[in-house]
Amino acid sequence: MLSERIRGAAGAFAVGALAAHLVSTVLQNTPDSYNQDLRKFTGGWPLPGWRFFAPNPGVQNVHLLVRESTSDGAAPTPWRDVTPEVDHGWTQVLWNPGSRGPKALFDAMQQLSVMSANQADFGWVTRSLPYQLVFSASRAAAADDSAALQFLLMNVFPSAPPERRMKPILTSEWIALGPVPAEGATTG
């Protein structure tokens, strides 16, 4: 009889503690105007401080477009979107090693967007690591017989009206390409 009371009390305490933790977490993560510092009430118990991308959530997608020219003097190819596709499935919550490459490219494109928005000197931008990473991704998507390529970063606002849905961010100069090394070949 006493052990049932102890188990019942322990269960009620655990449920109460979990409920208090969840309520405190929600209160801790309300907008700053309502946010109270709850640490003085928790006795040192840590509360997570999530912000879920606030106060500036992402509202656009960045796309990488490429066009090429050949050495025969023909007109450049049309722009084509070479932004990596990222599969989204329930297993990616636990294990998603394939996300690192697209995430690195996305971060580089975001950094170029920031540079462009802040009117950075184009010569400085072209020497930056993000620019080189985006160029490498563009080069990997180019045809083997391309003599030069140009890439374009485009912001796409899915919720905007159609006439304001796309906004160019940065267009590279034409970049001359050398021959593509054979697979497995080393450069000296």
Rank of each mutant, 00 (worst) to 15 (best):
R139I: 02
T70I: 11
L112R: 02
V82A: 11
Q60K: 07
A140D: 06
N56Q: 14
N96H: 13
V125A: 07
Q92W: 04
V62P: 00
N118Q: 14
T77V: 11
R100D: 12
W50T: 07
D72I: 11
P130C: 02
L105D: 08
Q111H: 05
Y131V: 01
G49C: 03
M109S: 00
N118P: 01
V66T: 03
A143Y: 04
R127P: 10
Q132H: 01
Y131D: 10
A137L: 02
L129F: 12
Y131N: 01
A120D: 05
A117F: 08
N96I: 03
L133M: 09
W79Q: 03
A54D: 15
T83P: 06
A141T: 06
R139W: 13
Q132Y: 01
L129S: 11
V86M: 04
E68A: 01
G43A: 13
W90G: 00
F52K: 02
H63V: 11
W90Q: 04
N96D: 14
F52C: 12
Q92Y: 10
Q110D: 12
A108Q: 00
P48T: 05
A104K: 14
T42S: 02
R67T: 03
T126R: 15
W50C: 05
L129M: 04
N61A: 09
S136T: 08
F122C: 04
R80G: 04
D81H: 09
T126E: 15
D121R: 01
D72G: 08
D107I: 00
K103T: 00
R39G: 12
F135Y: 14
R67S: 06
N61S: 15
T70L: 12
Q60Y: 06
W90E: 07
S71K: 09
D144W: 04
A104R: 11
A142L: 07
Q132C: 08
G43T: 12
D144A: 15
A140P: 01
K103H: 05
W45E: 05
V62L: 10
G49N: 14
P46V: 10
G89V: 02
E85L: 08
R139T: 14
R127L: 15
W124G: 02
A140E: 12
S128A: 14
S128H: 13
S136V: 01
P78Q: 11
